[in-house]
Amino acid sequence: MVPVVCLWLAGCASLPDTYAPPMQRRPLTGPEPNPVDHYVTMSEADADVHFVSGISDTTEAATWRWTGPRAELIFRLTTTGHLRFAMDFAIPEMTFKQRGPVAISISINGRLLDKLRYEKGGQFHFEKPAPFDWLRTDAYNFVTLEIDKPWVSPDDGARLGIILTSAGFVQ
């Protein structure tokens, strides 16, 4: 009896079954506001707004790009406190035969944050606090990656550094 009564009562509930067109959203004609932000992932469609120099135009496997021996990126920050510079990258094992151990110098706005040395290939994650007084919110922040020994591609002779997946500042 209860289900029958409820069925009947619920049938009385009135919700509209037709609707007027809603408010129209503005068409999206470009990337998000502030396309240059605090972090870049190579898979993003608009990742190249963060590149100043030394990063390949081509995204490989939709996730990574080669850097050159010296790569420069820009980032825009809304705060400078408690930030860490983070980077996901890889160094192919096969490149060590040609160039031996690799050192990567990471600089922020011209100041050396760290110098990393790798003797074997692999995937790596780097993360280190960025001193707040090195950073600025009123202008772009420049991050430079310098690889001491480039790998020369046997196919086209391109001088390549590391495989970069993402980089930037995180809290």
């Binding site: 079954d17 037709t18 609707y19 007027a20 067109p21 809603p22 503005r26 068409p27």
Partner: peptide
């Protein structure tokens, strides 16, 4: 605008 099923969300196909 009308949809079946889920008529209540039909406006989301017309909001640009």
């Amino acid at each position: 605008l009308r949809a079946h099923p889920n008529p209540w969300d039909v406006q989301m196909a017309f909001d640009n």
